[in-house]
Design a protein around this nucleic acid. Sequence first.
DNA 1: AGACCCGCATGACAGATGTCATGGGCAGAG
DNA 2: CTCTGCCCATGACATCTGTCATGCGGGTCT
Lengths: 204, 204
Amino acid sequence: MSSTIKVLLAEDQSMVREALAALLGLEDDIEVVAQVARGDEVLPTAQQHDIDVALLDIEMPGCTGIEAAAQLHKALPAVKLVVLTTFGRPGYLRSAMEAGADAFLVKDAPAAQLAEAVRKVLAGERVIDPTLAAAALAEGANPLTDREREVLRAAADGSTNAELAAALHLSQGTVRNYLSTAIQKLAVRNRAEAVRIAREKGWL
Amino acid sequence: MSSTIKVLLAEDQSMVREALAALLGLEDDIEVVAQVARGDEVLPTAQQHDIDVALLDIEMPGCTGIEAAAQLHKALPAVKLVVLTTFGRPGYLRSAMEAGADAFLVKDAPAAQLAEAVRKVLAGERVIDPTLAAAALAEGANPLTDREREVLRAAADGSTNAELAAALHLSQGTVRNYLSTAIQKLAVRNRAEAVRIAREKGWL
DNA sequence: AGACCCGCATGACAGATGTCATGGGCAGAG
DNA sequence: CTCTGCCCATGACATCTGTCATGCGGGTCT
């Protein structure tokens, strides 16, 4: 708490990452002491930098920002976690909170909220968009089982049942059964819609 | 060329937009004189600001940065156009060039290239990632006809043939024929894959 | 132990989807 | 003017997909 707040910034797109660093650099009390472009570099980098706050994008190669948040929360519980994302998907918010995040920001919020969120989490506050929180609560938890999610995720690229069966070591009939139950749970008509809806909700 | 380069910045996500503005603000010779969050605000805003360069994100509500580029190119041909995008899709590059863009940057390029590109286009140079340019040339032009693209785009959300036929005022058989030819042109097995491939190439 | 949910499977059926042959109308290129 | 390509349509066919009934084994909760 002495002089400046030390921040680790994780975001895969260099231009965005460095731009966010420039933005935070304008604040006198905040200093970006490390930057990474991959989810799986977050924990190792955090361990050798003595940081106060980690700013994590969700969509990253290696592992997602949410998984990185969970790792940090376990290994370095003192570090505050701010999750940043392009998509305001309620399921993401829920997962982020379960992973121990202290703040959840969407990238189309005003830039001023970023520095503000960093200061607030360090003061022990939680920062969550109330509209998104309401949406997350309203739609309930992910209704899909692990297998259903797995099959749906594999089906997302347009694979045929036979390919899915081979890839997942299941019978074709089983693949169709899982997809069928997923389709019913999501109240849609076919796998393509199921994929779309599951994505929108952050359940995929 | 006098004192500073005047830039219009178009990008829908506030946080990213303001961060990019902060980044450009660090350069002594560049000044962001206007910011917009929608494609259809680009031209009107540009007309009342006397700008040198427009920095356009592709994915925006209202209209795409490529459409905005085409409008600017026609109405204010002196303004240099830098197109910025998350996705390095060859088809995007091709469309951007056809719309009169002077530079094409992907967001995972180093941040330093942004200011550099702004200066270069003003000096009359073109800035294009050579790898991407090669890819764009290698894969040729979009093989899909207008109708095929239209049907494929409409099918992307998981709509059924009947819904597509109704929405596009076509018969179901015609919808299936278009999808079938699109599927063959893209050398894939079903509409879902066709959608994915067309998206990846920037042909959708 | 019994009830219950999940994972996995099969078989049968209806409906959706992809392919193919075919043909008419219309525009632009040679 | 003919040729070609695109747009639109139909009908028939094979295959893929989604639904449903049913069953088995394993785990968990009471």
